[in-house]
């Protein structure tokens, strides 16, 4: 009886301690949540207020000028926002398609076939995986100039065919879901190898393609370093270039409602899409990080 009582006490004591540590965890998590969301909350608030209101003071509550700011921004011919959005969508979309398709193709080549330089090819890709593109940008600009590709989208899109990290992800994925028996069965049925890849392999690795397409799209939608060096014409600029341009302009003279609105447009659509796909995306990050 006594022993039972003592045991009960320790359990109660244990659970009390657990409640304390849980509460502590929730406080830290709540703090981090606020830290993550604060700036976006302020962005949403100020995108709905007019320049005068933003200048006069701070507010926790939204204003009513969201459409007013949007209309102002879209009508400003110095900041071709709608055009830049279309450009960004085009570039990011093309990059996402090329990156995923050709990475899957490369991964399939190294997964399904035996040939002499197979091991060497794989080692090469692994070795260059981490080399940042910035280190060859100087030569890249020189090359683009010689090829007459400056101020076009080609240098932003074409190089994305070679994406070592996406390749690695696809290769890992194929190793876990793509048995070579299926490829052989297709061969017996007389399917051409390229046809097999397009019609049988690609549908089987759809989840990997979807995840990588999302990442590639976001990465290129956000890309600033190379586009800023390649694109000059106002009508060809992408969203990040417009933001940089606005930052370097004397912003004190600018309508802050418009500035907040442009940042809002750059950030919020990605955020909304993310909220719907977050489970899927986080699973993708987890898959990508499980290596070897």
């Amino acid at each position: 009886m006594e022993a039972q009582k003592a045991e009960k006490n320790t359990i109660r004591f244990g659970s009390a301690r657990l409640t304390v540590s849980r509460t502590f965890c929730y406080i830290v998590l709540a703090f981090l949540t606020v830290l993550c969301l604060f700036s976006f909350y302020m962005l949403a608030i100020n995108a709905t207020r007019q320049h005068g209101a933003i200048m006069t003071g701070f507010s926790w509550l939204p204003g009513k000028s969201f459409l007013f700011n949007a209309k102002n921004l879209f009508e400003d011919t110095n900041i071709p926002t709608l055009r830049a959005m279309a450009n960004s969508l085009f570039v990011a979309g093309s990059c996402a398609i090329l990156t995923t398709y050709f990475s899957a193709m490369t991964a399939y080549g190294l997964h399904a076939y035996q040939f002499r330089f197979k091991q060497a090819a794989f080692l090469f890709i692994m070795l260059v995986m981490m080399v940042p593109y910035q280190v060859s940008t100087l030569g890249f600009i020189e090359l683009a100039t010689k090829m007459g590709m400056m101020d076009t989208y080609w240098p932003l899109i074409l190089p994305k065919i070679a994406a070592p990290i996406v390749f690695f992800f696809m290769k890992q994925y194929m190793e876990s879901v793509l048995p070579l028996e299926i490829v052989e069965a297709a061969r017996v049925d007389g399917s051409n190898e390229f046809h097999t890849f397009n019609r049988i392999v690609l549908p089987m690795i759809k989840p990997a393609i979807a995840v990588q397409a999302i990442f590639a799209f976001v990465e290129n939608w956000n890309n600033y370093f190379i586009p800023a060096l390649i694109i000059n014409t106002n009508d060809k600029k992408t969203i990040p270039i417009l933001i940089a341009q606005l930052r370097s302009a004397d912003y004190m003279k600018f309508d802050l409602g418009k500035v907040y609105m442009l940042v809002f447009i750059a950030i919020i659509p990605v955020m909304i899409v993310y909220i719907f796909l977050s489970k899927f995306i986080i699973k993708g990050v987890t898959m990508g990080s499980l290596k070897g």
Binding site: L29, L32, T33, C36, L37, S39, F40, M42, L43, V218, W221, N222, Y224, I239, P240, I243, A244, L246, R247, V259, V263, A266, I267, V270, M271, Y274, I275, S278, K279, I281, I282, V285
Partner: peptide, 19 residues
């Protein structure tokens, strides 16, 4: 919590800096 803490990773860095 996972959704919230991962979110800033997808935000356009230049826009985030401007903000």
């Amino acid at each position: 919590f996972k959704t919230v803490i991962y979110m800033p990773n997808l935000i356009m860095a230049s826009a985030f800096a401007m903000l």
